[in-house]
Every structure is written in C-alpha cells, then in structure tokens.
Design a protein around this nucleic acid. Sequence first.
DNA 1: ACAATTTAGGCAAACGTTTGCCAAACTCTC
DNA 2: GAGAGTTTGGCAAACGTTTGCCTAAATTGT
Lengths: 336, 336
Amino acid sequence: MNKKRQVTTAPVSLAQVAAAAGVSVATVSRIVNGQTQRASTETAARIREVIETLGYRPNHVGRALRRRESRIVAMLSPNLDNPAMAAIAASTEAALRAAGYVMILCDTHDRPDLQDEYLHAMRSQGVRGYVLVNAVDSLALAGAVGRGDPIVFVGRRNPVGPGPFVGIDNYRAGADAADHFWSLGIRRPAVIYPSQGSSTTRDRVAGFIERMRHLGIAEDQIRRADAPGLSHLQVGYEAARILVGTGDWPSGLLCASDLMAYGAYRLAWEQSVSIPADCRILGVDDNALNAWLAPWLTSVHIPYDAFGSRVVAQLEILWRGDQPEDDLLPHRLVAR
Amino acid sequence: MNKKRQVTTAPVSLAQVAAAAGVSVATVSRIVNGQTQRASTETAARIREVIETLGYRPNHVGRALRRRESRIVAMLSPNLDNPAMAAIAASTEAALRAAGYVMILCDTHDRPDLQDEYLHAMRSQGVRGYVLVNAVDSLALAGAVGRGDPIVFVGRRNPVGPGPFVGIDNYRAGADAADHFWSLGIRRPAVIYPSQGSSTTRDRVAGFIERMRHLGIAEDQIRRADAPGLSHLQVGYEAARILVGTGDWPSGLLCASDLMAYGAYRLAWEQSVSIPADCRILGVDDNALNAWLAPWLTSVHIPYDAFGSRVVAQLEILWRGDQPEDDLLPHRLVAR
DNA sequence: ACAATTTAGGCAAACGTTTGCCAAACTCTC
DNA sequence: GAGAGTTTGGCAAACGTTTGCCTAAATTGT
C-alpha cells in the first residue's frame, strides 16, 4: 500500500493549445493578449474555444521571464500584529488585486537586516514594485533607491533620501491634538512616545509641542516621557509609568499611537485612575476596535482604508516613469 | 528638463558571471547550487570571487521556470482586519521565511468567487503550495484538491473533503467553556454565534451544548441567538441584542469569538449592564489586546503564534509526497 | 605503455512566454 | 493582369536557469 499522493497534474501550456487548435504558439499568444488583428475571426474563435475547453491559463512565470516584469508587488511591513499595519496591508492588498497585481507580504520586525534580506529576495523574485511601510535605514534600501527601483513609502518617509510617500501630516496631527486639549480647557497636557522614535512619532510630538508653545505653554511646561521597546503596548505602559512616577496623572495625555494609549490605560486601571474622568487620553490611529472596546479613547483617525488605492496610484506613476508627489491624506480627530 | 527617472539597472545574470570568470554558465550554475565536485577548487574560488564582486543573485523567475517549482507559498485568508487572521498570517510568514519561502497574501473576504480567482491566479503564479485559512466551498478549491495540489487548511477544515488541517479542537474548546461556567456556578449560560456558521463556530457551539447536556442541562434550557453579517463585531452586537431582547441578560455568555464578545460588550455598555459583575462573557481567540483593553473577558487561548511552524511542517510533508495527519494544537482557557 | 577510470567543464535542450521579422495569400486599383 | 497594399500566420530568438550528455585531459591500474 503506497501512501504517496498522486502527482499533481501539470497546467495546460500555450503549446498544447496551439497543437489542439492547429496553429502556432505565436498566434495563440497573440489571441490571449488581445491582438485580434493578427488572426482571422474564425481562427480567433477556434483558439478561444480550445482555450476554454482545455482550461488554459497563461503561466505567469514564463511571461515574467520573457517580459522581464511580473505582476507581483512586495510589501515590507514591520510587525503585522499591529492593527494599523494589518489595516494598511489589507487595504493595499485589495487595491493591488483590483489593479491586477498580487502582493508578497514580508514582516521585517523593524529590523534592518531582515529588511535587507527581503529586499534582496524580492529583487530576485522580480517583483514589479515595493511598498515599504515604516521603512528603516538599511544598506539594500539605499541600493534600491539608488537604482531607481519603484518604491512607495508608507507611514514613515524614506530614511535614505527623498521618495514617494503616502501617509498623513503627522505634524499637523500633533497640533490638532494640542488644539483638542486646549478646547477642553486642558492647559497642561502630557505626552508619551517611543524612545527610538521614527520620523512619524517624532513629527506628531513636535507638532504637539510647537502648537502648545504657540498657545502660550512653554515647552518645558509640558511633561513628557518615553520608553524603549518593540511593542507600543509595552512602550505606552512603561512611558506612562515613568511619567506619573514623577508626579500626578495629567488631565490630558497624548499618546503617539493607539497601542501606546492602551498601555497607558492599563496602568491607569491598575492605579485606579479613572479614564476619561481623571485623565483624558488621546491616541493616534483610530483603531477599528476603539468603538467597541475603548469608548474612553479619543483618537486621530488615519484613513488606512484609503491608503491602498493611493499606494497603487503612486506605483503606477512610478511605472509610467514619472515622479509622484507626496500624498498626504486627511486625518481627523474623533471623540467618543 | 526631463522629469523621467533613470531606468532601473538590470540585475547581474549567470551569463555575465560566466563571461567575467571565463567559464560556461553551466559551471557557474553548478557552483551557485553547491555542486563543488564539478569544478576544480581554483575555478570554484574564481567564480565565487566574481559572484561576490558583481553582486550576482540567482533570478528566481528563471529558476522557477526551469525547475518548475517556485519558493512562493500562497496564503488565502478572509478579512485580515480580524486580529486572529492577522496573527495567523504573521506567524506563517515568519515560519515560511525561516524555511526559505516567501508568502503571497490574498484576502478573500470570505467570498467563494474571490477565493476561486485567487486560486487560479496563484496556480498561474506557480506557487509551491497553498495555505487556506477558513476556506469556503468553491469550484476551484475542489479542482485544486482533486488535482492533489499541496494545500494546508487552517482554522476551518477542508469544506470539500479531507485534507491536512492545523487548528484546535473546537468541540473541546466549547466543552471547556461549559466546564468553566459550571465551575463558577453558572447553570444557565447562553451562547451566541454567527448565522452562516463555519465548521469552526459550529463545533464550538456543539461542544458547549453537548457538555452542558452532559452536566444535566437540557439543550432547550440554553438560550442562544445568532445573527448574520460579515464582521463578528456586528454579529456579536446583533446576536446579543436578539438574545436579551427576549429576556434578561444571562449570568454567563459564550461568544463564538473574541470579536463577537466585543460586540456583546458594547451592547452591555449601552444598556448599563455591568461586565463581568452582571454577566460573565467568554470568548474564543484570546486576542493579544485583551490583556490591555478587555480585562473583563475570559477567553479560550488559541496558540496562533505556533500555527506558522505547524503549517510549514504540514506543507513539507506534502512536498515530500507523504500524507500528513491533522495537527490539533492545545488550547487553554485564560481568565483575567 | 596502454587501457580504464575519474575529473573538469562545455554544449545544448528544455521550461512557457512574447515579439520582430518574414512570407504567403488575399484584395484592390488602374 | 500586374503591381501595391493588407491580412493572416509561422519561425525563431530571446528571457535566466538547470541538467543530461558528451569530451577532453588527467589520473590510476595493470
């Protein structure tokens, strides 16, 4: 008794279609690619008939080799566990499919070495373009940028130079957060953020501080704390602990991301600090779960659902050979 | 002034390496593939030298065409927005990378037509195997299964026959939930689940009901409600509304998933029902955010982090030509 | 010294496409 | 009815690999 499974049957090739239709592969290829003016109506119909009955589907590998371009796009993203990253991946995947592409997803864990490994692997794979979510500085990235490979940066700008960007105006988002606190009468809000901040979180904090300064609150009046770490949940918890370790809970607390807000919330819960009564927490991302699980959290909504089509639009500009401009999507503060 | 970007430089090919080293492409190919016994030590060294300086990397497209097998695996998953699906995707991606593969991610939105479209596209892409998360019944799936394509089913079993499976024992998970309620002295728990239930949720509910019956609670004593819809959040909210519309809140409520539990929680919040004081809610999935945002939720932990390596193990068995056995991972109830 | 074997490496045919070029066979036009 | 133009379609060369087969040269055995 043999436990081996049957070998999986091979797909139909152009040659088989050609043989069955009594024409050359060239003719079939042209029909498949819609060049109807290169075959008589009857021949075309016959070929289509055979294609239908044989169930022929073009082999993308052969096509990619010959055309020297595939229909695969690589997305490199740090930790997919972050709901914001998952949202970006989901919307980009959908937009790519609509445009006739498929997406290879690579989780870089925010590590430059992994990012490099993936960039190399994707180039070998002959991908048509790259979507780099929160890219980090790395050797192969510099190489790809230098070569002029089609890359779109999402969330975080190109760390090794200029390059097409899709995201929000983080600086203004921070400023809006300041305005929100101000309109609530909160004059001494605090802010927490990750230690090894990217341009993203740095911009948010900078916009916040600057706007507060503009409203008349000196920079050194704004309490702030940061913490290292990979998970923003942990970072939020730790940074909040550091912050309130040196004083009371602030009446308003801006967190650089929703996940950080969750971390801070947990500390508040442990310390029996009532949210939002004792401390208004503000996050950024507007995670879809907030409406269900975190009604206490006001957050800056980032339209991740819209990112996908914008990313594809940028890629298509690059493929045309043009130079795209940064695409800053509108954010808005949603209070619950 | 031309706004076009410079054309991206082509990668180095085997032929270029061969020319630079003064040997044939065959020899270079053999060195690249580690067949050292087919070249003298000096030749091998010289070739490696050239490879290094030219920065040659094998083109996976050409290789895939010739070898008739790629290093790409396709994952088809319904809505990535679901944190559980994202967790599966993340762990599978990591395990695949460790094994030298890359992952194309396809979001089927639980739609058979999209699943079929992707199955066809992936076959054209020449993927080495398929990971189907919560697969639905569809034509192309039956075709792929019939052909003996390497497919691993995750979460939900193959809807069109047998097939390698990675997941948990959902029936036992339901039973464990029943035991948990019982140990808390809750004798009349309720249960909510999606209307168009998959085998997954059906098994959970069935295990729950059966265990309760075994404990002496007749099936018709257990209140239950279901609701249709795509998002388990909505489903949970609606089903809970239907459930309590016909009576009081139960002292214990099993929800077929954590997302459904969030939905039910929101209704409770709107109706000023105190959770967990008035009603113990039990979920399944043990979402990573629960610890931070939903301390009121007890959940059946599913080791999604471990799924990835198990999935790859199943794939490797299939690739060897053997018949894998179902891989049921241990779950456990975590109370907070 | 000669045959037998091993070693080192090249040739060329695939794999499934696409496409430039060429050539018959039509269809006009005068 | 001859030239000119248009249809219709095939040939063959790529694209970058891998690998079966072949052949010189080098080594070994007798």
